[in-house]
Every structure is written in structure tokens, then in C-alpha cells.
Design a protein around this nucleic acid. Structure first.
Lengths: 233, 233
DNA sequence: ATTGCACTATGAAATGTTTCATGTTTTAAC
DNA sequence: GTTAAAACATGAAACATTTCATAGTGCAAT
């Protein structure tokens, strides 16, 4: 048994990435990818991939929540997006590039699988349909990011924070089993404003009955009003 | 001769897209794509693709300059990027989607070629290498956009306008044969600020010796100082 | 229990940005 | 040439945001 066949935390036959892949490629082709992959577990706060480090492949996030984090030259932290598994990470932001342009940090405990890009590439070269499917999945993530950034760039803080609360609730926390808990500092790094402004804005939203703050947990009370805010700026 | 074989403004044998494609696919395969394509000329100011309209393919911009423009629900115009030919447009922002999410408007006179996505797709399905090459090209455009948006979302107006001037100069106007002429209103829609703020900022940059304004033409005087500004915000 | 640390919170001052009012210049059309 | 429309420009007032100072809270390590 090869070294990388050891220490499998989770069962590859149940993997969604395998199931998705194998509607487009043969099981034998997927085996090429699986053999070179290896599994890891990360705890809340741990860095899974580091910005600037050499990238040898891409990442399948089985479960958990991660943030994409970017550090500017003057040491400011910027969160570009937050996603929850199961999801294939890489694609347009990391795929086929030598250097990671973002760090990926666990926001909740994560199960991940590292996929060697050479193995994936060798399969993709022989299968246009598979490559096309990954292309389309990447294009869809790209569109999502674009609209996220348009909201950030062209709205005021109220609208930006409303957008982020909605995004996090609808696409990350709702139905995930995790409580909707995220620090003001992280919202600030996501929304491109000071953490004081986040605190003020959340307090204001609470006074206006848009959200409820229970301990560290955020609850959306009036989702329609938040949507209005996120549109109008 | 088929209808779409008529009215060829420019010679397909000289087309860069063909030359690039044919290093990866057979000339006969490219002929499938060429046969379904048709050429158009657009003048400054004309809309080439309209946001919300049905998308039947993608666009090869032979020459000229275009802006990607997005209209929000409350009728604000936002420019997401400005590019010059030759460049394949579509990819992650339009490719394989039914509806155009942006308008594409000619900023200078343009020669374009409409490429039918079904034809391209049929070739791509049989050729993983070709699909992969387009994937990589799209991923690269995506990265560029992301950094553009990070600058917009996380910097102040000085830094944003400095970034935009640098981007436009280095990637669009420099060596293009076009004068670096763009209205304050367009910079404002690109930089996500009021046109008054653009006017003030450009005047300030001029006073500080960063740029020179000759008639409508913008000249970069101190590119290093602009780069500092774009980094520090 | 105490200490240190990170997060939350608030108000005031300083700064940055938009909006509004107004006027000038440029451009295109007749 | 005259005129109308668009773009450019400027200053002041209104508004939004950050920065700074200060302090309470919860949590983990000792």
C-alpha cells in the first residue's frame, strides 16, 4: 500500500467530488486523481493554504467553513469571500497557478482533500466534457464574486454590511448546522470598513429590528428589509 | 456561398484567435467555428452587447477599446473593466450563459467577430487541451478583475483613481495608437465615486506633478508616485 | 483568583466624500 | 456664427467614515 493510501479520514467512495466527476469520467480515470490525493483535518483558525506559498494542486473542501484572505503590502487583511463545503476550491483563483494568491483559513473545523493538479490535468486533457464542466463551475463562482465586489465597491457601509449578512446567512450558515457566529473584525475585513463602523452598524440594525444579537450569535429578523438595504446602498 | 460567408470586413487567415486556436486544434476544426462566425464594425459609443439580452455566443475583439458596463436596479451605471483588442471577450463573464450580465460598449471604434458558442462548444468537447487553454486564459482575466476590485473596495478615492489611471495606461492605452482620453464621468463610473471627486483628484494629481492634462489627453508624469498611491490607498 | 489578551462598545474629533448650486469651456448641430 | 447640449470645474454645506481615546466583557493560561 502506497504511503498516500494511508490515513484516510473519510471514505472516498462517499465523496461528492468523486460522484460528480464520475458522471463525466470513468471510475478508472478518477482513480488516477484519487491515488495522488490526501486528506487532512483542520481546526478553527488554522491556515490551510498560505498566500505566497507554492501551489501544487487544488483543494476539495468536504465540510467546514473557510475564508479566503488576502494580505496587502501594507499588512492590511482583506477577506475576499467565505464559503462552506462541500466545494471545490481552486479553479480561477488558484488553479494551474504556481503561487497561491490568497490564504485559505478555517473559520470552522474543516475536512479537506488535496488534489494533485498534474493528475487532474492529465485526466482533463483527455476529456473536454470534464474540463468544460469545471470551467462552467468556475465561471459561476466568478460571477458570484463579481457581484459581491460590485456591492462592496459601489455601496455605502450600510448596504455593504447588509449584503454580507445576507450572503453569509443564505450561502454559508443557513442549514449548515453551524451557528451564525462571526467576529466584527472579520465582517470589517470582508466589508472593507473599520471594525468600529461594523459595531455601530450592527447596533443600528438591531435597534431598527433588522437583526437580533444573542451572545455571539447573529439572527436575521427582517430579511426583506436587509435586501432593500443591500440594493439601495 | 452561405449567407454568413458574405461581408467579411477583415481576413480570417490573419486573425490572432485563429492563429492561437490552430496551435491547439486542427484547421478543419477551426473551420467549424469560422463558418458560424460573422464580423461587425462599431463606432465609438455604440453598444455591442446589451445587458439582459440573450447571449448566443462570445465575442472576439480584433481591434478597438470597449468598456464592460453594468446598470444597477436604481439606474446607476458601473464600469467593471475597460479592455482593448485583440482579446476574446466572454469567458467567465458571458461564456455559456444565456443572458448577458454586462453591456459591452465601444469606447473607440471596434472590429469584432461574433462566435457561435455551440460551434465552439462542439470543438471544445472533443479537445481537452483547447478547453484547458481557454480555461487558463479565463482564469487569468479573472485574477486581474479580482485585484482590480480589491483596489476599488478597499482603497480611498486617491488610491482608486491612481490604480485606474495606471491600469488604463499600462493595459489599454500605452502603445495602442489611441490617445489616453477618457471622460471624468467614465472614470467616476469605473472608480465608484462622484465625477466631482474625479475632477478634484485629477486636479490635485496635476498640482502634485503626478500627471499632466493637455486638452482632453491625460499624460502620466510620475508613474512611481502613482504606484505608491495605488498601493497605500 | 489573577493576569493578559482579544473582542465588543461608545463618543468626539478629524478626515473624506457626496450633493448642490453655479459658472465656464468645449463640442456638435443648424 | 449662433445656439444648445454636454463636459469640465469650483466652493460650500451636508453627510459618511475613520481614527483615537477610553472602557467593559469574556476567555484562556498561569
Amino acid at each position: 500500500m502506497a504511503l498516500n493510501e494511508q490515513h484516510r479520514y473519510f471514505d472516498c467512495s462517499q465523496c461528492l467530488f468523486k460522484q460528480l466527476s464520475c458522471t463525466l469520467i470513468e471510475d478508472s480515470e478518477f482513480e488516477v486523481i484519487r491515488k495522488t490525493s490526501y486528506q487532512m483535518k483542520y481546526q478553527k483558525g488554522e491556515t490551510i493554504l498560505k498566500q505566497g506559498a507554492k501551489s501544487t494542486g487544488l483543494l476539495y473542501l468536504h465540510s467546514g467553513i473557510v475564508k479566503f484572505s488576502f494580505k496587502t503590502e501594507d499588512q492590511r487583511n482583506i477577506i475576499t469571500t467565505i464559503v462552506r463545503g462541500p466545494k471545490l476550491l481552486g479553479g480561477a483563483n488558484l488553479f494551474f497557478k504556481d503561487i497561491n494568491i490568497f490564504s485559505i483559513v478555517a473559520v470552522e473545523d474543516c475536512d479537506v482533500c488535496y488534489i494533485d493538479s498534474n493528475a487532474l490535468r492529465s485526466v482533463a486533457l483527455n476529456n473536454g466534457r470534464y474540463t468544460l464542466a469545471m470551467f462552467e463551475s468556475t465561471a459561476s463562482m466568478f460571477q458570484h464574486s463579481i457581484f459581491n465586489f460590485i456591492s462592496l465597491a459601489h455601496n455605502h457601509v450600510n448596504g455593504r454590511i447588509a449584503s454580507i449578512l445576507l450572503y453569509l446567512w443564505e450561502h454559508v450558515y443557513e442549514g449548515s448546522g453551524y451557528d451564525f457566529i462571526i467576529s466584527r473584525k472579520e465582517i470589517a475585513e470582508f466589508a472593507a470598513c473599520s471594525h468600529e463602523n461594523v459595531i455601530n452598524t450592527l447596533s443600528k440594525f438591531k435597534k431598527e429590528g433588522l437583526i437580533e444579537l444573542n451572545g455571539k450569535k447573529i439572527e436575521i429578523v427582517n430579511i426583506e428589509a436587509l435586501k432593500e438595504l443591500s440594493k439601495k446602498g
